[in-house]
Design a binder for these strands. Structure first.
Lengths: 103, 103
DNA sequence: GGCCATACCTAGACAGTCTAGGTATGAAGT
DNA sequence: ACTTCATACCTAGACTGTCTAGGTATGGCC
């Protein structure tokens, strides 16, 4: 469970450059050491939502006979990512104070 | 938005001893410096859910004419809290690695 | 040909949070 | 006496995000 932080995670992966949906899922799994092993039914709809919101753009790409939809951050998406990072830091700090968890 | 972490927060507050629902809401607001200003409609059903799950017990208390339902962690609740803290630490670390956020 | 990994998709179920109501008491001000 | 505010509890239904469970199609390997 990624508890409403999927936007941050996906956009975080896309900081490093454009990537297709399936690759984003792989990268989430890899960077998190299998903590985030997300089903396609979670990630694809989220990508569509982020694109509709103007935070990502996508283009179709042909890769060895396979079609891929490659996603990229828009300037608006970069700004939103920075905002979400700030929110996340404050959230973590607040949880720490409330529940006495050090991270 | 507290994104699926309400159990951790509520049980975190109750670490320090028994407290009634309204007081828990106050304490969440106070400790978090207003980051977690949660409506009663969020917290009360969560308390009922945690009690049904055997993580909390409650008793009615009369305080200056006012009735209060005072909640307390059960042993099972303490164990679950420790578990949820561990999960939270791992989650925060994983988000940090994936999205490159330092906390 | 069969199977697996890659690569995309969506409908509907489910869970947790929030909105928006409701009740009732006590204290303080007019 | 009346109003208003803070305290203190409650629930039904809306909403949102995640997950389950299906579907399609290609390429590589045995």
């Amino acid at each position: 469970m990624i508890r409403g932080n999927l936007d941050l995670l996906v956009m975080g992966v896309l900081q490093g450059g454009a990537l297709h949906g399936y690759g984003i899922i792989d990268e989430l799994r890899r960077r998190s050491d299998d903590t985030f092993d997300l089903p396609e039914g979670t990630v694809y709809p989220a990508l569509h939502r982020l694109e509709r919101a103007g935070l990502l753009t996508s283009r179709w790409q042909q890769q060895a006979g396979r079609r891929r939809r490659v996603y990229e951050l828009t300037p608006k998406g970069r700004a939103e990512l920075a905002h979400k990072k700030d929110e996340w830091r404050m959230f973590v700090a607040a949880v720490g104070r409330v529940a006495g968890v050090t991270t």
